[in-house]
């Protein structure tokens, strides 16, 4: 099974951390976005199965992306990967439709566990 993946984070380092944590089977079809607006534009022009989404970003933040996805009825599994780990923020992104909340810096075993749980592996 192959899935197409979008990673949205303003930090190059953080994008690399996600890439490095992806199992080989999923790392073939990956695109990158550096802020929320870029991600929404890519989501309207192409189909993705999975979005790894940061929250604190310039131009449009992760909450804005989640809202955009909801409004456009985009069919995609969103995994939020953020440094903002306050419980209030975690429950907020889940209520906006994210599949899971992962703490930064992301760890390979945590990422794989989440992908398995949601049937992508």
């Amino acid at each position: 099974m192959s899935s197409s993946i979008l990673i949205c984070d303003d930090s190059n380092l953080a994008r690399k951390q996600v890439l490095r944590s992806l199992p080989d089977i999923l790392s073939a079809d990956v695109q990158l976005a550096t802020n929320g607006q870029e991600a929404l534009e890519l989501l309207t022009s192409q189909n993705f199965d999975i979005l790894f989404l940061d929250l604190t970003m310039p131009i449009l933040d992760g909450l804005g992306v989640l809202q955009g996805i909801k409004e456009n009825n985009t069919n995609i599994a969103v995994f939020v990967i953020s440094a903002d780990i306050q419980p209030e923020m975690q429950s907020k992104v889940l209520s906006l439709g994210a599949k899971a909340f992962l703490k930064k810096p992301v760890k390979k075993e945590v990422l794989i566990e989440q992908l398995q749980q949601h049937g992508f592996l």
Partner: peptide, 22 residues
Amino acid sequence: DQQDCLQELINVAMGQASDQLA
């Protein structure tokens, strides 16, 4: 790259510190 790396380290530190503070 150095700037980006420092920024990300700070973001993560801010996140965890804010969580403790909260």
